[in-house]
Design a protein around this nucleic acid. Structure first.
Lengths: 132, 132
DNA sequence: TATGAACCTTACCCTCATGGCAAGGTCAAG
DNA sequence: CTTGACCTTGCCATGAGGGTAAGGTTCATA
């Protein structure tokens, strides 16, 4: 299986698969005589694992750790849970930040007449916020 | 006023002020004989404007537009509102994505025994998701 | 058999907002 | 006159990709 098929099968781009290999997330695969990377179905499972973890927002560094734990029969699920909880905390922090942005943006937009005039509550708020 | 004081007064870093100038967001300021950037209180207001807009998540490109509108007496608040609404839509999209991540992470974490064993619902989910 | 399309390789540069470091110039106080 | 705090420019790094270019390979079809 060449990298194109591996990309299609895993949902990643070929570019990213090479990038993951180059940054140490993946073991270098076997190569064909011409130098083409060769992927086995086992490799596809790893690629899918990476893709799912990326969708959940795990960093590549986190994923490297999770992959090592996944492939280690002596692993402790306590460690895995800690990684996930740490990531969840970061996600929740970003959620809070974005929520605060959303609130303020909504208030500003609600106060904007949008009548084509020059008076603008949004610019006023950015220039000299009355609250928040 | 040198850049250090301008940074302290605006809440930005000196580094970022230089960067904003270099990327065209700010007009180059006057310089002292030694080449030091000189800031007036009017400049500080602009820097504060930028900082508040950054806190709300506007991109530097957006802020360039907002600054131009702010300083244009012929502006139309309709345009300003459009910029803000577009940004709000992006914020809401990211909120949805992060919320989905949070939901899945919470489910995975709740199913993880964390008893030090090798069985791990989190890794299982990443390897072969039963749902989502 | 030749050729062209579709694939693969590596090696660059770009994003975006920000931080860090290095080498050197300036200023003010002791 | 030295010292320390400030300033200057310029370069590199981040993270997770995208784009592009120049060149090699594979395969089917004319």
């Amino acid at each position: 299986m060449n990298i194109g098929q591996a990309a299609a099968a895993s949902g990643l781009s070929a570019k990213m698969i090479r990038h993951y290999e180059q940054s140490g997330l993946l073991q270098p695969t076997q190569r064909s005589e011409a130098g083409y990377r060769q992927y086995q179905s086992k490799d596809i499972e790893i690629l899918k694992f990476i893709r799912r973890a990326r969708i959940l927002g795990f960093s590549l560094a986190d994923i490297a750790g999770l992959l090592a734990l996944w492939q280690n029969p002596q692993r402790s699920n306590t460690v895995v849970k800690q990684v996930a909880q740490q990531h969840l905390a970061e996600v929740e922090l970003k959620l809070q930040e974005l929520h605060a942005m959303k609130q303020t943006l909504q208030q500003m937009i609600a106060q904007c007449a949008a009548d084509g005039g020059a008076h603008c509550a949004i610019l006023q708020h950015l220039a000299k916020p009355t609250r928040s």
